[in-house]
Design a protein around this nucleic acid. Sequence first.
DNA 1: ACAAAAGTGTTGCTGTTACACCCATGG
DNA 2: CCATGGGTGTAACAGCAACACTTTTGT
Lengths: 219, 219
Amino acid sequence: MEKSYYNVVETVLLIYAADKGKLKIYLKKKAENPYKGYWTLPSAPLDNETTLEENAKKIYEGMTGLNENVMFQSKSFSDLTRDPSARIIGISFVAITDKVLTEMKQETVDKAWFEVDELPKLGFDHEHIIKTVSKEVKKKIVTNYDDLLLAFFPSDFTLPELQNFYENVLGKAIDRRNFHKKFVNQDLVFDTGFKTSKGSGRPGTLYRFNVDKMKGKRI
Amino acid sequence: MEKSYYNVVETVLLIYAADKGKLKIYLKKKAENPYKGYWTLPSAPLDNETTLEENAKKIYEGMTGLNENVMFQSKSFSDLTRDPSARIIGISFVAITDKVLTEMKQETVDKAWFEVDELPKLGFDHEHIIKTVSKEVKKKIVTNYDDLLLAFFPSDFTLPELQNFYENVLGKAIDRRNFHKKFVNQDLVFDTGFKTSKGSGRPGTLYRFNVDKMKGKRI
DNA sequence: ACAAAAGTGTTGCTGTTACACCCATGG
DNA sequence: CCATGGGTGTAACAGCAACACTTTTGT
């Protein structure tokens, strides 16, 4: 490097979960200006003794109170005006949790889950970040490999539940019988022997992912 | 952001091309310490008036003298000791050129192409970066979608040429008849009507990618 | 003629798509 | 008994994997 310039770098975290058949993202409401009252992605400035990964993990823990999760890097954002106060490089990370977070009622007045396709008013360039990264995440879920679905559904689920989520991500409907075959015939899931019993209608069979079979599998 | 910390940020560029059936990367030899005489990835510090994309483009132009190319972001590297002089955040970009660069003999004493699986002694954490990013690039080439192969082979090629490259990237051999069908039967390529005529052996048919058919196609 | 490299067909398997009716539960 | 939601089979098609011999050129 011929010369040194200094930049402010922040880690921006996109926490996703599957909830009620929708891909959702966890946001916080800004308490102070700029963008007071707007929703934003959790983020933290990067200091000189922390790696981006460690920083992302800290944000995750601060936001959720949990510390186990699937996390990976996504894109960086460097537009000169993305933050009104200064030129800040934003490096995004994706975290995936299972739906437990929602069920634990972690929603408060300043933290909430939003469908990625129905976002509230967002501060900074966070709408742009969410749209860019979500597109990538959706593509990963439906076209790439295993790990993502597994992260969203680490424990028991019914096939209709999985299918709703999958259709939401894919953006189109799938025939139920074909969806069933895709997962059952390929042994990607196994029947736990339990059934759901909530609400009206026939109870659904609870499945779990067959981790070994998922490995490196295209779905 | 509660508090501001300053970091040095650099854009690191990985320029790839397909050459003689191999996936290669374009490196430069460091003229000064640290790592004098070692090969390194081209890189440039990020100033406060340039985006990462613009910076990557500048590096590309400086390194190749060209300005048209396929380019996209890849991972960021933030280990505290990745540069011995200071804590520097490295944000990597991938550029893909067609093999013309090699044919134009752009290799000089301090710039050369190396197979990604046979790297020379590298400075900084560049071996780590190359291995990490190359893994991702290879995966993209063989499992994801269209654009990558198109970027490597923008104009005429023979199927054996493409196959050699594909096998190198995939890390295993493919049956020639099946490879042929995969591309020809699906109309992903079309016969230009020309033949190669170099060297011994039967001349090969020159094909070109059928851009429309490639769109969003898994290969 | 021979060495080098390119071209080509068939079969079985696996996954995908299209399509409609019956079953289990709660109210 | 009815509304709600879950479960299921078959047939046609597309892509993939396994398999060996022939054709065209240069020397």
